[in-house]
Amino acid sequence: MTSPLTTGADARTRKGPGGVALSLALLPALAVVLILFGGGFALGIVQALGYLPGAGLGEWSLAHFARVLSDPDFLHSFLLTLYIAGASTVIAAGISIPAALGLASLSKRSRVIHFIFQMPLTVPHLVIAIAVMFMLAPAGLLSRAATGAGWIASPADFPLLINDAWGIGIILTYVWKEIPFITLMLLAVLRHTGRDLLDVGRTLKADAWQRFRYITLPIIFPALGAASLIVFAYTFGAFEVPFLLGQTYPMTLPVWAYKHYSDIDLMARPEGIATGIVIALVVMAAVILAQVLTKAARKRGLIA
C-alpha cells in the first residue's frame, strides 16, 4: 500500500524544467502500469460484456452485468463487503486518532513506540490472517488458554470469531494492520503544523476541548479522510483475508468474483469478471477521492 501523502511527488515536479525531465524519465514505468492495469481492465470489460470466443461466447451484451447486479446473492455479498470494509475502516480510524494525538504529544520521539507502530506495516496481510486464525480459532491459542485458565468449560464454549457471520476475524486482522498506517499519516500532519497552531489557539483563548474540536480535527481531517479511503479501498478489494477467515455464505465480493471466475462452468466466468469490475470501480472512486483530499491538504500547507 502506498501512502497518498508521498505519491504527490509528480504534482510538485511538474513545475519547472526539471519536472519535465523527471516526468519523461517516469514514462517507461508509467507505460508498464498503464498497459498492465489499463489493458487488463479493458480486457476484463470486454469479457464481462460477453466476448469470450474460446468459450463459445461471441456476442456482446450487458446481460452478464445485469445478471450479476440482479442476483440477490450479489447484493448480500456487496453489503457484507461494505460492512467489513466500513467497520474495519471506522474502527481503525477511531483508534488511530487518539493514538496519533498521544504520539504527537510525546516531547521526544520514542523509538520503541515508533517501531511497534511501524512493524505491522511490513507484515503481509496473509501472514496476519494466518496468525489470527491460530489465535482465534475454536481450537486456537486463546480458546485453549481460556479453558486452561478456567474461564470457559471447554474450547467449544469459545465464541466463534473466525468464519463467523460478523466477520470478526477479518475485521480484527484489518484493524490491527491498518491502525499503524492511519496513525503514522496523522502523526506526520500533527508534527508538520499541529504544535504551532495549537499554541496559537491557546493564546487565542481556546480551551483543551475547543483546541481539539476547532484546530486538531480540521488539521487532521484531510489526512484522516485520505487514509481512511485508502484503507476502505484496500479492504473492499482484498481477497486473501476474507478467503481464509470468512464464512462460506455469504462471501465477500472479491471471494465471490474469484469463485465465479474459477468455476468449471465457463459460463460463470463473465459474471466473475463483471463482479471484479464493480469492485475495481468502487476502489477507484475511493482512491480518487483520497487524492482530492490530499491535494486540498497540500494546497493549504497542512502537509509537505
Binding site: 497552531l197 493564546t203 487565542l204 483563548k205 481556546a206 480551551d207 476547532y214 480540521p218 493549504r300 497542512l302
Partner: peptide
Amino acid sequence: AVMVFQKPLLFPFMNVAQNIGFGLRMQ
C-alpha cells in the same frame, strides 16, 4: 495576554474573517 507569532500561523482551513473571529468564537 495575546501573542502574535514570528510566522503568521493562520488557520489554513479558515478564511480571513474566520481567522480573525477565532478568539471571539472561543469566548
